[in-house]
Structure formats: C-alpha cells, structure tokens
Computed example of a mutant assay.
Amino acid sequence: MLLALALAPAFAQVGGPSNAEIVQLKAERTDEGVLLSATLRIDLPPVVEDALAKGIPMFFVAEATLLRDRWYWYDKHVAMAQRHMRLSYQPLTRKWRLQVSSQPIGSSGLALGQTFETREEALAAIQRISHWKVADPSDVDPDSRHNIDFRFRLDVSQLPRPFQIGAVGQADWNINASRNMRLITEPAR
C-alpha cells in the first residue's frame, strides 16, 4: 500500500504539467443562444516566452461542444464553436498583437486584431472569454439534459516545422485545460 501511495504522484504526472487552468466556467441559456464565459490562468513556459520574444507567433484554440444526454448511446453532439487566437510580438515596434477568429488564422491575417503594450495585457485578453455564443437557441431541447465540454490549448500544429518537431514529447509545450459542465435548461432572464 505504501508503494502505491509513493507511485501515485509519478503516474499522475506522466502527461506533464499543463501550464493552464480553468479558474471559472459559466454557461447560460438566453434568447440569443447558449453563452459561455470563462476565466483561465495561463503560465507561459520559458521556451514559449523565448519563441514569442523572437517574433514567432503562438496559436491558441478555445473549443466548446454542446452535448445532449442519451441513455442508449454516446452523448449526441448538438453544436460546436471554436475561437482561434494568434498572439505575436512585433520586435521593431515592441508591441503585442492578438488576432481572434472563429476559423483557423492563416497567413492572410483576416481576423479581428488588437494591439497591446505589454505581454501581460495581451495574455489577460486571452485569459478572459466573455459571453461567447456557442449554440443557437434552437439547438437546445428543453426536455433533455445537456453538457458543455470546454477545452483550451496551444495549437502546436500551426507552429513552424522546426518547433513542431522540437515540441514532440516536451512538457514545456503542453498548454491545455478542459472541463465539462451541466447546462441549466431554464432560460436566463
């Protein structure tokens, strides 16, 4: 029994630390649809901070999936929403730029953008998600129970190839958090 207690922390850290945590998660059903608000805590590892300081953008993705409970099979996917965020540092102007889009942000840069003076201000904008519409009102069946799966992660697949290869198996590039919650079916007033 002592051996099991001693090995439990080692097995818990096999995936490595995630460097992200969902501090608060709230979903409400309104006349506009299902709105999600979240507060995150993100600790950028030194490797990620160094890459950002050299002008390499980091791509973050927030995903919300609305699921309807079913007793006879897996829960049914009712709706899904994604929010893609591109954080970059401009060394010449010494400004931080955050672009947000519902689609993956490519090299075209067609996304809502905002400029910040400091890294902390830009990260604060990433860490707060407020009244994000994740489903339409018609997606929610008032007679069924629904769950919301929320996930936030660093999308290493959009990094330059040398960083993708170097990120494999390294816990420093593991920035993700997820949580599941029950949706209250009574509309908010």
Rank of each mutant, 00 (worst) to 15 (best):
S138C: 09
H146Q: 03
G169W: 02
V78R: 08
L3R: 15
G109A: 00
A64W: 04
D31H: 11
H77S: 14
A51S: 13
A167L: 07
K26Q: 15
Q170K: 13
Q24R: 12
K133H: 09
R97G: 00
A177F: 01
V134Y: 00
M1R: 15
L110V: 13
R153Q: 11
A171D: 12
E21I: 10
H77I: 13
V100W: 03
Q127G: 01
I126V: 13
I129E: 02
E32K: 13
D69L: 12
A12F: 09
L110D: 13
D69G: 10
N180D: 13
A27S: 12
M80K: 13
R94C: 06
I56L: 11
W73F: 11
P104V: 03
A81P: 01
L67W: 09
G15W: 09
R182P: 05
L87R: 02
R86W: 05
D141L: 04
E186V: 09
P9V: 05
L183D: 00
D139F: 04
A38C: 01
A53D: 14
S130F: 08
F11S: 10
E32H: 12
I148H: 05
L159C: 07
V14D: 07
F163P: 00
T115Y: 10
K76N: 10
Q24T: 15
L40K: 04
V134P: 01
N174R: 11
G169E: 05
A122S: 02
L7K: 09
E63P: 02
D31C: 08
P57Q: 06
P45D: 11
F59H: 13
S18D: 08
S138F: 12
P187T: 08
E117K: 15
A8R: 13
I184S: 14
S178T: 10
G166K: 06
P142K: 06
L159P: 01
M58L: 10
M58I: 11
N147H: 11
A111L: 03
R41A: 09
R179W: 08
M1A: 15
R41T: 07
D155C: 05
S37K: 07
A12H: 10
K26E: 14
M1P: 11
A4R: 14
L183N: 05
A81W: 03
G169Q: 02
I56V: 12
V156H: 00
H77F: 08
G16F: 01
P9E: 08
N174E: 09
S130H: 10
R83G: 03
Y89I: 02
L123H: 00
H77R: 15
I126W: 06
K133A: 06
M181W: 03
R86A: 02
D136K: 11
V48H: 03
L36Q: 01
Q158H: 08
G169A: 07
E186G: 07
V14I: 13
E120D: 09
D143A: 11
A81K: 08
V140T: 07
T30L: 00
R161A: 15
G16T: 01
I126A: 03
G113F: 08
L25R: 03
P9I: 01
A122D: 01
M80Y: 12
P142A: 04
D141P: 08
D155V: 05
N147E: 12
Q158S: 14
T65E: 15
I22G: 04
Q99K: 12
M80N: 15
E117W: 04
S37Y: 02
V61Y: 03
Q24V: 14
F116R: 04
L123C: 02
G106S: 00
P17Y: 14
L159V: 08
L183E: 03
